[in-house]
Amino acid sequence: MTDQEIWIYAEKHVGIIQPVTYQLITKAKEIADDKKVVVILFEATDKNLENNIMEYGPDEIIVVKDDRLKDATDSEIANLMAELTKRRQPNSILFGATVVGRSIAPRLQAKLGTGLTSDCLNLAFDDDFLIQTKPSYGDNIMCEIICPDHRPQMASVRPNTFAAKKISNTTTIVTEVNDLMFKEAERVKIIEETPLLSKSDSIANADRVIALGRGASDDKVISLAEELARKLGAKIGVTRPLTDHSKFSGEDQIGQSGNTVTPKLLINVGIHGAVQYTTGIEKSELIISINKDPKAPIFKYSDFSYVGDSKDFLEGFLKVIQ
């Protein structure tokens, strides 16, 4: 069978396609073999986000344009996806494991009566089976999940797991579909959307991050770290205990239940290195850690380690780069 399709749900927030969509296109192309990579895009009539998506070279983009899609709810999107799925019978459907992906995908799964694997860290095809690798128990174990007897095979994939690559000469076909039934959801509506001046967005995308743990929670140490961050053009992230500090919130947290960071340079100050934290930093290029305890597990994840005091280290750093 050659005309099997892998679908990717294009996620957008306030009119911008989310990076995970592009990451999924690149990954899907890599594993597709003879399958077609098809992106499903829902947008308002005044938008042309297909032009952005095209740069990543999917085989096809199916676009549904309707002004009600500006603030469509989970169930409305799931209904439209289900209708499309019934028409074209894709082999697989991929979502970002984001709040939106994790909300729409299971709703669609229930409509289609098929399997869904959440938060995958790897995908591969073994013949026709999508082999989905996902972590469990707080990333302490990995498992391989398959959905042998039902189609489509559905998975959500953790953002920033794969790199997105632009393609220079693309031959993407854009297909507009405008005869779907838009079943308006009853009893629920989105009344307001506000972009968060997202600190989380910026640590997730920052090239340099200084991460503070409980061993760097003094106000003095925090202000030294802020000064160093300004000098290095770095963003500040924290471990979970520091989200209780008035300066920080869950938005700033790195780790399993926070952000995954992918900087070129990460400096961990006063961080123990619990697995729930280190899960969020594994994609960093160069990791430097400071901890007063020579046995701190964080050192196992670090390229450079310094056994010593947070405050001394930060003061020293600022002095040396003056």
Partner: peptide
């Protein structure tokens, strides 16, 4: 709360 935006959603029960 989404990753980089916040929505206010109004709904009626049951939900």
């Amino acid at each position: 709360l989404l990753e980089n935006m916040q929505q206010k959603i109004e709904f009626q029960l049951p939900a």
